[in-house]
Design a binder for these strands. Structure first.
Lengths: 194, 194, 194, 194
DNA sequence: TTCTAATCGAGACGGTACGTCAAGTCTTGCC
DNA sequence: GGCAAGACTTGACGTACCGTCTCGATTAGAA
């Protein structure tokens, strides 16, 4: 049924070169000028080799974003939920405001018209990190730092919604990199009542 | 230097037909399949007539979105800030979850790679409505309903960030149309302390 | 039903440039290296413009061959059928042994697998010229130079068969340009008996 | 220098399967759709195995044609040159009008752009059979059936030129399988004068 | 009988060309 | 001069084959 080739036979050198070329071209010329032809040329690879392993340019770019974002492991846990969230959000916004953001914005844009990419963004980037955040929030709820009557999923959306808002709809009046300012205000509404 | 033609000579019938065709095709086939050729054909209009009055497909679609969203006038003001925000957000999410959202998502996606569209989205759609919200929040601050030490711009981002998050990164586990749930929690953190 | 564009709107400059480029590239690099991309580049023309007016590379090349062969008008008629045939065959073989032959061979080759090209070769190149020859032969039959009991179509095939044979299956032992040698021998069998 | 592998190590089963697959696919789908990948798949053979023993698809197909045409041995010799030629041409045109012709046409077409194939067509198919015909004609000359002042090579071209003409440039008005009609007319011009 | 080397099936690889699609510009003739 | 119509250049797309290459598995003659 599936036509997917045997991953064991995949050529490491080509695989690496494609990811590197995608990153390099996207960062250098912008996501809009990224084309499969150029990636192939830059990587010294046949176009078919790209299509063999990735269904579309968007999914390929997503893999690059995933790689550059680093592993979705280990939400900080110092016992202070506010500090931990600020640490995490600082890390995230630093990435989003940098080269990774250039590519990630392009991928999310493609996701608006391609459901497979939209799903992949959720599955590969968003959900794993969201889940780590939820676990941390669950622990804070358990420690009576946060209210227990709000689903942690909702909490996550409250905390990261404004960050993505500034990321995807940037304004000269708002600075993505100062998104930690939201944390205290939002936590005020989420803290367990005395 | 200026290339803009005389708007007085603009043909009303064509103008109307172009906007209608854009809306109809975008809603029927999705923003991804919207092309200038098809709009022109559907509108019974020459392609050049479209390019004479709009610099790109994205800006044209944005005009359609603007029209369908209705005038950015009159944020509700019953004296109850929570109720007013819920009223407003209910109206917005109803739009975003419907046909308008299909087109708006496409426009925002194009904005990720075209700064002119990104700016136009802010200028035409986001900022005017955001400003109305700020004015309402300012009044709530004046009425000591909300804290005075947080910029109302930030408050707006906290309130609408999660809405756009669910709009642009939809998940089967979250329902854009139930975004009023955020309001009370966020306002908890924004209310003036006794 | 037909999607063929309006020939009145055809751009003369592009049309000319495409034919010229096709000829030049085919002659310079050989028919095998002729590609639509290269023709377009050499002609300074979009590929789509080629596909708009010609269904395939073969038909385009055929048009060039037709043009270079010159009009299929006026089979020589001095009253001496043998001399006239030799004149005509000398002209033809001079063409076939030269640059026109390079392209024509390529077109005939494509015709072996594309019935539309095969038909076009007949309709555009072969049949009109064959018809002129038949008319000349008919006159020779009328003048009792040739037998009346053999269809002139068959006579044409007898006369030109060996020419095409040497053209398409060339051998170091046979010289296409000396194909007039066939004429007398074949006419011996076609002459009216005394 | 020589790259040819040791033929002794050749796998008979694979060899057979490749030839059979080539024939089957060429006849079923036409020469134009014949690809090395498909041959390999159909034969249950690696592509490299094909390229190890044949330099190109055309040469492989030529081997199949050669095989299907049968051995180039034994031009008929009843003492009646006209009858013998008709017998032979009937046999040939029956082949060419059938499945063999489909493949042979494709091979000749490839020969138009690949000199190695062109040479192979001559060496493997045409020349051996032409030589047999020449020998028969020589005998007819010796028996004073035919003129001695025309090279038998030329005679062969006169006799088979029209056949190949109808084969390679078929027309609805001419029937390849009735090419024996040429024989008597051409022989009229070749017979020894009394 | 084991060793060794070439062939084998399989299929990924770097390339080239294809034919299609859309964007945005240019041209023509009508109003 | 705006307009409908549509041809134009440009450039990316995703597919199809080519002929080469790499990989273990198989196999057949030589040791």
């Amino acid at each position: 049924m599936a036509k997917s080739p045997n991953p064991e036979l995949r050529n490491r050198r080509s695989h690496r070169a494609i990811l590197d070329a995608t990153w390099e071209l996207a960062v250098r010329d912008g996501y809009a000028k990224l084309t499969v032809d150029r990636i192939a040329a830059q990587a010294g690879v046949g176009k078919q080799t790209i299509y063999r392993w990735w269904p579309s340019k968007g999914i390929l770019a997503l893999d690059v974003v995933d790689e550059k974002m680093g592993p979705a492991t280990g939400f900080p846990d110092t016992g202070d939920i506010a500090a931990d969230l600020k640490t995490q959000i600082t890390g995230l916004t630093t990435l989003l405001a940098g080269e990774v953001g250039i590519v990630y914005r392009g991928v999310i844009a493609e996701g608006q018209s391609d459901p497979r990419i939209e799903a992949a963004v959720r599955d590969i980037i968003v959900d794993p990190r969201l889940e780590l955040c939820r676990e941390r929030l669950d622990r804070a709820v358990g420690a009576c730092e946060l209210r227990a009557d709000i689903p942690t999923r909702t909490m996550v959306e409250m905390l990261y919604g404004p960050v993505y808002y500034r990321f995807l709809l940037p304004s000269p009046e708002s600075d993505l990199r100062q998104s930690t300012e939201f944390v205290d205000h939002i936590l005020s509404g989420l803290r367990a009542q005395i």
